[in-house]
C-alpha cells in the first residue's frame, strides 16, 4: 500500500505538515486560520516532527501490516481497514487506555485528552481521499506518498 515516507535529508523542519494535518482534521477543512482560531478543541497533529539540528523529519503512522496497535487494542477501536490497509482508530469506542501508545514501535499514536481521552493517529486523510495533506503541502518534497521500494 502507499505510505508516507519522509526523506529527512530534505526536511526543513518547518512544521507545515503539522499545520495542514491539524487543519485537515479540524471542522474547518481547508481553512487554516479558522481551524486554528475557531476549532475547539483544536485537533492534535497526527504527524510528529522531530528535530535535532541539522536533522529534522516528520513521522506518521506506518499503517503496519502486522499492526501492534490493532492487536493490542483492548476495546477493538483500533482497526486496520482490510480494503485500504489504513489503520483507523474509532474514537467513539476508544477509552484512552493508551495501550496503543505503549505498543506502537514508531511512537506514532498521540493522546488527545482535550475533551475525551482518545488516541489519535494519521488516517492518511482517507476521508478527503487522494494524497495526504502533509505530503501535498510539504514545501520541499520531503514527504513522499508512495508504495514501498
Amino acid at each position: 500500500m502507499k505510505r508516507v515516507y519522509v526523506r529527512e535529508e530534505y526536511c526543513a523542519g518547518c512544521g507545515l505538515c503539522q499545520v495542514h494535518c491539524i487543519t485537515a482534521h479540524s471542522e474547518y477543512k481547508g481553512d487554516i486560520i479558522k481551524a486554528y482560531k475557531k476549532s475547539f478543541p483544536r485537533p492534535l497533529a497526527r504527524v510528529i516532527v522531530e528535530e535535532k539540528r541539522p536533522l529534522s523529519f516528520s513521522l506518521q503512522c506506518r499503517h503496519c501490516e502486522e499492526a501492534e496497535c490493532v492487536k493490542a487494542c483492548i476495546t477493538g477501536a483500533m482497526q486496520k481497514d482490510p480494503a485500504t490497509g489504513i489503520v483507523i482508530n474509532d474514537t467513539a469506542r476508544c477509552i484512552g487506555c493508551w495501550t496503543c501508545v505503549l505498543v506502537c514501535p514508531y511512537g506514532a499514536v498521540r493522546r488527545d485528552e482535550t475533551l475525551h481521552k482518545v488516541a489519535v493517529k494519521c488516517d492518511m486523510c482517507a476521508e478527503a481521499g487522494g494524497v495526504p495533506l502533509c505530503v501535498e503541502n510539504c514545501p520541499n518534497g520531503a514527504l513522499e506518498y508512495r508504495e514501498e521500494r
Binding site: E68, C100, V103, P105, Y106, R111
Partner: peptide, 14 residues
C-alpha cells in the same frame, strides 16, 4: 510521561 514509549516496547520486541 508515556508518550511514544511504544518505541521502547518496539526496541524490546526486536
Amino acid at each position: 510521561n508515556i508518550d511514544r514509549t511504544g518505541i521502547l516496547t518496539g526496541l524490546i520486541k526486536d
